[in-house]
Computed example of a mutant assay.
Amino acid sequence: MDASSLRAARTQLTDSAPLVHCLTNTVVQAFTANALLAVGAAPAMVDAPEEAAEFASVASAVLVNVGTVHARTAEAMRLAARAANAAGTPWVLDPVAVGGLSFRTDLAAELVALRPTVVRGNASEVLALVGAGAGGRGVDSTAAADDALAAAEELARRTGGVVAVSGEVDAVTDGSTTVRVGGGSVLLTRTTGAGCALGALVAAYVAATGDPLTGTVAAHAHVALAAEIAADLADGPGTFAAQWLDALDALDGDALAAADVRTS
Rank of each mutant, 00 (worst) to 15 (best):
A33K: 00
V27S: 12
A52T: 07
S102D: 14
D47N: 15
P49R: 06
T68W: 10
A38M: 02
P49S: 08
G88D: 11
S60M: 06
V64I: 14
A59V: 03
H70Y: 15
A74C: 13
A80M: 08
C22N: 13
R82W: 08
A97V: 08
S57Q: 12
A48M: 14
G100W: 09
W91Y: 15
A86Y: 13
S57I: 08
E54P: 07
A53Q: 04
L79I: 10
T26S: 15
P90E: 05
E50P: 09
A84S: 11
E54L: 15
L37W: 03
R78G: 13
N65T: 11
Q29H: 12
S57W: 15
T32G: 02
D94H: 07
T24P: 04
P90M: 09
V62D: 02
N25A: 05
R82L: 11
V96N: 01
V98C: 09
G100M: 10
F55C: 04
V62M: 05
A83C: 09
P43Y: 00
V58D: 10
L63N: 01
R72D: 15
V96C: 04
V64N: 00
L63A: 02
W91K: 02
A35R: 01
G88C: 12
T32F: 00
T24L: 12
C22G: 01
A52M: 09
Q29L: 13
N25H: 11
E50A: 13
